[in-house]
Design a protein around this nucleic acid. Structure first.
Lengths: 169, 169
DNA sequence: CCTGTTGGTTCCTTCAAGGAACTGACGGGG
DNA sequence: CCCCGTCAGTTCCTTGAAGGAACCAACAGG
């Protein structure tokens, strides 16, 4: 775990990492996503320490990514399900899968395939611009300061543009 | 840092995390991406321990995400630049930004904006199917075992489908 | 010669991860 | 009634990574 908390930084990447940046968290999310949603199932599938799994699940529930639901009282049994917030995080997993397939899978090929409901084909994700629909990759954008740019402890009105000095022509 | 190495798992998410899953790594990548590419610049911008920064940079270079380049001999000075592999990882950052903006930015609004070169508009990424071009989110796919599905130490021919039991109808 | 910049390395402390054992509520079988 | 098994954790101990500060070395400029 990072001892430096990222949640207070004026950076959406840091704040996203604050939620799922700890070791195991994305893999736990993946498991819940594919239907492995109970404590012992997840623990066995990942071979994760029960202690760490407890901590991660608690954090993810506290942050509204997962919900802990009782599917049987007597005996009390729970399972973890994705919230809308958590489901959108799974989009991130799809992009990670794409990169991992391209750069780490090697000759054996991808360990898991994804079939798109709409077309029925084995496929993968591509990044498009929400406005014009054309490809939008890291090379296709300029970075510039936004309204929430100043760090929390900074007085308003004094935007910290120095942190984004490469903000393009 | 995770003590359990994820690189050996038969999972592209785990293998991606093995490369950039450690604390600070995505933020270092982001800094190099926006042009903050020298050791001391990165260290000051992130307020990261010099020791950890050294380790992370070394790991990222070893894994082909960054390149260490001398931009001045005498005195020897270096900067870190993205490889093609690293640039594609930045796509992941864009998706993290999108989630962070939606779910963590609050009233202040996003700290950073992204202008798409092709249309000139402030925008964000959307996930599309590489085959049919329609939206492809986590809810829009079936998960099924692929060619590289068996774990490394497993004898070939005996696919471990048990790990993906929710593989959908 | 002294200072500043760049790019690290070394050392020490603290706290998270891993691992194994333990708990406790319940259900079922003999 | 007692023992076994399952689920969902909790407790405790050891190890090792993160944080922080100090140190080092090569060079440039004044």
């Amino acid at each position: 775990m990072q001892r430096t908390r990222f949640g207070d930084m004026a950076c959406s990447i840091a704040r996203t990492l604050d939620v799922i940046g700890e070791p195991w968290s994305p893999l736990i999310l993946r498991n819940v996503y594919v239907g492995i949603s109970r404590f012992d199932q997840i623990q066995q599938n990942l071979d994760i320490s029960r202690k760490v799994l407890t901590e991660r699940l608690k954090w993810l529930v506290e942050n509204g990514v997962l919900e802990r639901q009782e599917y049987s009282s007597r005996p009390p049994r729970h399972e973890y399900t994705l919230t809308a917030k958590g489901l959108e995080l799974c989009d991130l997993l799809l992009v990670m899968v794409r990169w991992g397939d391209r750069w780490t899978a090697g000759e054996a090929g991808p360990p898991v395939l994804y079939r798109h409901h709409a077309c029925g084909e084995i496929s993968h994700v591509e990044l498009r611009c929400a406005v014009c629909d054309r490809p939008m990759r890291a090379t296709d954008v300029d970075v510039l300061p936004g309204p929430g740019a100043e760090a929390p402890a900074t007085s308003p009105g004094q935007a910290r543009t120095d942190r984004y000095e490469h903000a393009a022509p």
